[in-house]
Design a protein around this nucleic acid. Sequence first.
DNA 1: ATGATCTATGCACACGTGTGCACAACCTAG
DNA 2: CTAGGTTGTGCACACGTGTGCATAGATCAT
Lengths: 339, 339
Amino acid sequence: MQKDGKKVRSIEVAELAQISRSTVSRALAGDARISEATRDRVLAAARQLGYRPNLIARGLKNQSTGIVGVVVTDLENAYHAHALQLLVEKLGAGRLAPLVFACNTVEGAENAIARLMSYQVDAVVALAAPFSDEIVKSCVAGEKPLVLMNRHDGDENVGVVAGDGLAAGAMVADHLVARGARRFAFLGGEDNSFISKERERGFTDRLVSHGFDLAVSLSSRYSYAEARVVAADILRAAPDAVFCANDTLAFALLDAARAADAPEGERPMVVGYDNSALAGWPSYDLTSVDQNLEAMTSRTVEAAFAMIAAPDAVAERQTIAPFLVERGSTSSRNSSRTR
Amino acid sequence: MQKDGKKVRSIEVAELAQISRSTVSRALAGDARISEATRDRVLAAARQLGYRPNLIARGLKNQSTGIVGVVVTDLENAYHAHALQLLVEKLGAGRLAPLVFACNTVEGAENAIARLMSYQVDAVVALAAPFSDEIVKSCVAGEKPLVLMNRHDGDENVGVVAGDGLAAGAMVADHLVARGARRFAFLGGEDNSFISKERERGFTDRLVSHGFDLAVSLSSRYSYAEARVVAADILRAAPDAVFCANDTLAFALLDAARAADAPEGERPMVVGYDNSALAGWPSYDLTSVDQNLEAMTSRTVEAAFAMIAAPDAVAERQTIAPFLVERGSTSSRNSSRTR
DNA sequence: ATGATCTATGCACACGTGTGCACAACCTAG
DNA sequence: CTAGGTTGTGCACACGTGTGCATAGATCAT
């Protein structure tokens, strides 16, 4: 292991092994035509010199870099951060390297995509990013495989892995009805984004089939402070139960209810979305929809692999089933209520 | 903008502009020797074809990829996630692309470093990563510039940007003494890591110079559930004020105090560290040390730039001054206390 | 013994870019 | 008209790797 500091190239391994550079390349690639003896000699030499193939050069030659572009938006949102961590881990396990760009504005998105394309990424994963139109357009134009996570989109040939917001909304409706709620509210997010709308629709439709309807529906940005204001408006309508498109919104609602100083038995039941770590803490103890990020990120990475392996195949769209984690915010201690 | 889907190479720009490929390269690089007229022709052709230089090829030729390796650990920790977001943004603004690897185990760290080196990154930024010994050793061996963020280390020639835990501890001591506390406790994290130790030392030393001392000092992992257990032990010692090495620890302590059902006036004052978003929410309203991540990440990126530009220069070590954000958890409503 | 088949390896090219050096064209001074 | 300078451009090489093709040696069939 004589790392003298300078780069070790394959030619040096070849010289040490008394062999040509081609043979080194083939031996390391596991080419069956290389004899056992020389392969061992090459491996020994490579190990001795601490040889690491230059993936940039390999990428240039192979037209495949092993780099995957990842576009994220708001890492301060714990849900996004967690998703990114899982993606990074799973991509790494699959011998792919994630090149991460954040974009908060539309020109940021265009810039990020341009950079990614310049780096010849093998695929792009967009993680709940807005401006997905731009991203889709650029990736289709550049013929790069693209997987959108939790972002539905048009009819272009892009991979889509998304949670089933409709099913989640229905599950929440079932749960709240079973707990005895009668007057329902929905607190949506981000200018009524598609995802928020979907969750609301699943919720409302199932309520209707139970013979109820939605008394109030308002929406807020995904920030705690702004949500507090809207939460107060929701509470003014005195709902039995509130379904929030996001855990942060739910926390704001819970705090607003506490601040209103209503006796505990009269506070509405609350359900959040994302099942963030905080939801499990006793201070909130929030019933929340778990999107199954573990499965979602796994499917996303698998989809990226598949599209890299077969670029011309039809991209599939997968739906991940969410599940409900029931906690104290919808416990029966709240069930005796006077609307 | 005739993107027919296939890659556009510089030779195609050259042909369209009726010029040689060298001239295209020089024109786009802003070489002064190129005449105004041809430069315009090249730019027009490049724009028309939607030409994007292949940064992989450029990296191979220039021995400089513009990629910076980023090593992170626990993105579920909001502090790390926020730091990563800022790093990604600031690196991107400086025309650098972050290749992100997560490592939770020591072999994960070695693997991550090996991958980074293979991708010929221009520098490595390690973000509060454990196993920094391995990282330092590998980067020094590979002669890659390395910047450690919030991680002090030996005498190797690596850049270090860290918050001033000593000063922070002292500030907290001053603050708590001024608020009337007399019996102090410290709740540390992660097996008494260096960072946690430093904060405690700053705290204790200043307490001593005020004529007080530390009644209790315990430590826990950085997870809420484990911290709750240790927090209960701390409370058993009935301190006036508790300084926690981490906001999560502080939240656990606050919840433990509430759960103990002591009258509000007798609960200890609590100070956290990181000033996470949650600290500002009314449910915790936690006084917390802000590490000034904005400044810290800026300095980190600047340090990386400097080390890339001058690899043989002596790496500098910078200290970022933290500041205290005072909130309700140390408000005077708690000041009348019976120890 | 000779041609045929197979095995193991080397030569040389390609990937797309940047740049030292040479050189053509033009201008100026004598 | 010639010598010398200035300006703009092209040739050809290098970066480190993978791989098609050719080939030397060995084994085998006849």
